[in-house]
């Protein structure tokens, strides 16, 4: 039966069948992801609103310019591009795991799920480094008439505008930047990182179920597909976090 024929002849709303031609679990995963998209959307739009309301906002190219083991080199966008590619690659390995599941290929599922988990953990490690770097990297800022060295936290922001003619050692002294910057950055990348973390946990559970032949006994690997939907969604959200925090 060809797909086109089936669609013409089927009374989708006649009862006894899924009008969306999908099993319950997958439909519900889609609706969960849609609601999650609105949650992330609300966070990002709130960030946009605050940013639009300010006359000054830190330049991401000047804030995110470090790379592990590269010392003080000025490398804007480099590290976050690496993180983006790690997520794209782990999305691809997830597609391959789902495809192996379609073919009832247990070995393939195990192999590609393992690579997907490695990608997820690599991404989380990158994020941990980036957060540590931002929180502990201190910069000279003029606060209440005194020069202080502060890092970026949810309550302090050293990325303000330059105070001309004031130097501290060999470095520029700045005003404090908008406080909301740290809160939004750590809040939104943290919420995304939490999704990646839970995705890794879900993928590990799927891997263990696959190695224990749970899906072989069930006769299908549709659980992998649902975990895959979640994992791709995490990649999808990163596209927009990457856009809003690092590119524009």
């Amino acid at each position: 039966m060809s797909t086109a024929q089936a669609q013409v002849q089927t009374k989708w709303w006649g009862g006894g069948k899924s009008p969306f031609n999908l099993e319950y679990g997958k439909v519900m995963m889609w609706y969960f992801l849609m609601s999650d998209a609105f949650t992330f959307g609300a966070f990002l739009i709130s960030y946009g609103t605050i940013r639009f309301s300010q006359n000054y906002w830190p330049d991401p190219n000047k804030v995110f310019n470090a790379f592990p083991l590269m010392g003080h080199a000025n490398l804007p966008l480099a590290f976050v591009s690496l993180m983006t590619f790690i997520l794209i690659v782990s999305s691809v390995t997830m597609v391959l795991a789902v495809h192996a599941g379609h073919n009832m290929d247990k070995k393939g599922v195990v192999k590609w799920m393992a690579w997907t988990i490695v990608g997820g953990i690599a991404f989380l490690a990158c994020q941990a480094w980036e957060w540590t770097h931002l929180i502990t990297g201190e910069h000279a800022v003029l606060i209440d008439g005194k020069i202080q060295e502060i890092g970026t936290t949810v309550s302090r922001n050293p990325w303000g505008s330059e105070i001309l003619g004031l130097e501290h050692g060999e470095h520029h002294v700045t005003k404090t930047g908008p406080v909301a910057f740290g809160g939004y950055f750590f809040g939104i990348t943290g919420f995304h990182g939490f999704h990646v973390f839970s995705g890794v946990i879900i993928n590990i559970i799927m891997l263990l179920m696959a190695t224990n032949d749970v899906f072989e006994r069930k006769g299908h690997y549709l659980m992998i597909e649902k975990a895959g939907l979640y994992w791709h969604f995490v990649d999808l959200v990163w596209v927009f976090v990457f856009l809003c925090f690092y590119l524009i």
């Binding site: 830190p58 330049d59 000047k62 003080h72 804007p76 470095h171 700045t174």
Partner: peptide, 17 residues
Amino acid sequence: EPVQEVQPEAKKPGSVE
């Protein structure tokens, strides 16, 4: 239109260690 304030060139990361 407020004067556009300028952020200094990227400071060396962790420069004040």
